[in-house]
Design a protein around this nucleic acid. Sequence first.
DNA 1: CAGTGGTCTAGACCACGGT
DNA 2: CCGTGGTCTAGACCACTGT
Lengths: 232, 232
Amino acid sequence: MKSPVYIKIVEDIRNKVNNGELKPGDDLPSEASLCKEYATSRMTVRKGLAILSNNGYIYSIPGKGYFVDKPEYNKYTLYYDEMNNLINNVDNAKLLAVDIIKPDEGLINSLQISKNKKLIMIRRLFYTDGEPMAYDMKYLLYEKGMPIVEKEIEHATFPEMISKRTSLYGSKKELVIYAKAPEERTKKLLNISDDLALLIVEQKLYDNKDRPIGLGTTYFRGDYIKLQGFSE
Amino acid sequence: MKSPVYIKIVEDIRNKVNNGELKPGDDLPSEASLCKEYATSRMTVRKGLAILSNNGYIYSIPGKGYFVDKPEYNKYTLYYDEMNNLINNVDNAKLLAVDIIKPDEGLINSLQISKNKKLIMIRRLFYTDGEPMAYDMKYLLYEKGMPIVEKEIEHATFPEMISKRTSLYGSKKELVIYAKAPEERTKKLLNISDDLALLIVEQKLYDNKDRPIGLGTTYFRGDYIKLQGFSE
DNA sequence: CAGTGGTCTAGACCACGGT
DNA sequence: CCGTGGTCTAGACCACTGT
């Protein structure tokens, strides 16, 4: 029941912002006057303001004060995992092929490598209830003597494959999401007809020095998958 | 050049986590021993640790200590705005209709309203270079005497429409993203043929008491739009 | 019990902005 | 110049964990 003083400060100011009493651009009372208002020390006031700042409610300008921030209308969080999604989870995966290949023009550009560098290409099919629901393709930088353990690859997500040899802490990841009608080859692989659209997700992983280390593309049956994002 | 002590602490520990010197689950030195190591006070050490904790690198258990956290492989940030996207921006919008309607079964469920509640239905077409690239539909709770200013609606994003009357601070938003082949009606509206898939984005907005206040669906030409997510 | 993190105090010095 | 936020100190008391 007895919550810390800084939480009280956070809640008071957050409520004023939420109900419009404080509007974007408005300035807040100074730290010193908040100390008096809450009869507390400056470090406690600062702790509360730091939390509001981390949550995007306010920002500070040294020498001037604290101001109410603009809310980010467009920002969403999305959890993406090619094996587990909103409507259907992958309950089985089949490794179609693992090949060592030379990169084509697109891969050279995308992964920023020389044309002599070799890549591992992994192709898989994902199944739900015995039905093929996605065709999956990964390209990884190949290092000499790199062990390729097919059993490990078959059911792993892209980050799992890569984290086997590189720490993924603090490394960038990118997604590109779009829709496309299936090509003949994909239609056969997924055993679908013309009137089914594909949801395509491209995934690009970097090491912690921002060098690309892998590219993945997954072609999902449009009726078998939905991605979900949220905010707050 | 001279950076604060707590930044030094953050960088040291973050580097140890990134290069594998510290692994998920490992425990960190206690606050007291970090004070000695950096010849600084406890509040300064705690400031550094708080930053690492906010960034998901570590977590703390009172009475026990600090531990290295597991990285979130699947988490991405996505900026979504129906009017501005990765490949093509909307340069023109046409308001097709604004109607006051009674909700059907789906809307009653989705917006958690009674069947007597009225809704505003807004239908628009978005254009890029004169070509229709998306069909957009919004349902908003209708309040008596609510002004409907068509000029304001025509070029507004969904959060912009709603923020006219409700603060969107601290209010939840949800996205659902999927792919589908176009229906006859949509094909005519967007002037497209069979072999084009649609990228469909459903957007649901809540007020700051977590009550749904609006539902939007946008049908994008699959070749005209890509969504992009990233992490770190 | 001693060690841990969580909260808090009452000061301090600094760089910066505006008058 | 004074008021602002940014960094930092050297203590304090508390609740919790493990022995």
